[in-house]
Design a protein around this nucleic acid. Structure first.
Lengths: 171, 171
DNA sequence: GTCTATAAGACGATAGAC
DNA sequence: GTCTATCGTCTTATAGAC
């Protein structure tokens, strides 16, 4: 069970650096210090490595998507969840080959649907153009400035949340 | 010269859907209705297709990175440039295999450096934590809500810019 | 749980005919 | 400018010994 964790850690790094499609099983095995065959003892396929890798963060974001919390709590949760899964969150929403594999597996709620659901909650029912754009803006701040900053301490967290709320401008 | 344009158009679609590493020359040739060999008459390698594809948008963003315009003009330019190259802009900053190939070629300023330069201009000299976070927030609004909205008309453009300026909050 | 060996095919790229 | 045919390599994945 320890080797399994090491495989996931190595895969996470390589997927982030080269993409899922651009990373081979042989490359992962090389870093692991074993052979490809040893890897297939722990995982049935390359796609299953990816699934195991994104399972937890995807579930966390899916939970957010179903949340009907008020904007301030929802945006704070987006910041915190993005910060918690900082390493995997990049590959999640970016690498097209990752999206493709997860879509084929129909594993759960896709990343696109999750984003859309959170933005819809922020925008409220039957939103005007203004409300819709502002919801997108607030979400962009919460998600992407957390990603860009890398590490988010309490000072950064408070500033990101405040900026997101200004972008939303509910007053 | 017409075939070359069609190849780039097809490659753009496939790279966006499956990623650069996840798209084969055979797949592009199949969509084109010809063979792989025909493709190699127009481009010397797969990487060269990618280079040709991102040349113009990358130059446009690099020009922004060197601009020392005031925040409002700079953010407006980010919105407009992102909107102009909406189709290619996604693959640019997202697909890890794209980043890798462009980095190997050392083609020009990388996407990361461009983003960092624009944020640095927004943050101003020797920025505090607050200024730095707000610069990231404003840039996130300009870039990612434009991407998320897909098409940006004059109404959306004005709302995005206003939201980005509120996030920056220079007052 | 890891190994060697190998299957079976996809990949990028090229040669040479037309 | 496009074709057929092919080279050499890399790919995912499996079989079977240890």
């Amino acid at each position: 069970m320890e080797t399994r964790r090491r495989i996931l850690e190595i895969a996470r790094e390589l997927f982030a650096a080269q993409g899922y499609a651009g990373t081979s099983i042989a490359h992962i095995a090389g870093r692991l210090g074993t052979t490809k065959a040893a890897l297939y003892y722990h995982f049935d396929s390359k796609a299953e490595i990816l699934s195991a890798l994104v399972e937890e963060p995807l579930a966390a974001f899916a939970k957010l998507a179903e949340s009907k919390a008020a904007p301030e709590e929802l945006l704070a949760a987006v910041i915190d969840t993005t910060g918690t899964y900082l390493n995997t969150a990049e590959a999640l929403g970016s690498d097209p080959s990752v999206r493709l594999v997860l879509k084929e597996r129909a594993q759960e709620l896709g990343a696109d649907e999750i984003n859309a659901a959170i933005v819809a909650t922020l925008a409220g029912p039957r939103p005007s153009v203004k409300r819709r754009v502002r919801a997108h803006a607030a979400y962009a701040v919460a998600k992407h400035s957390t990603l860009a900053l890398g590490e988010v301490g309490p000072r950064e967290r408070a500033e990101i949340l405040a900026a997101a709320l200004r972008a939303l401008d509910e007053s």
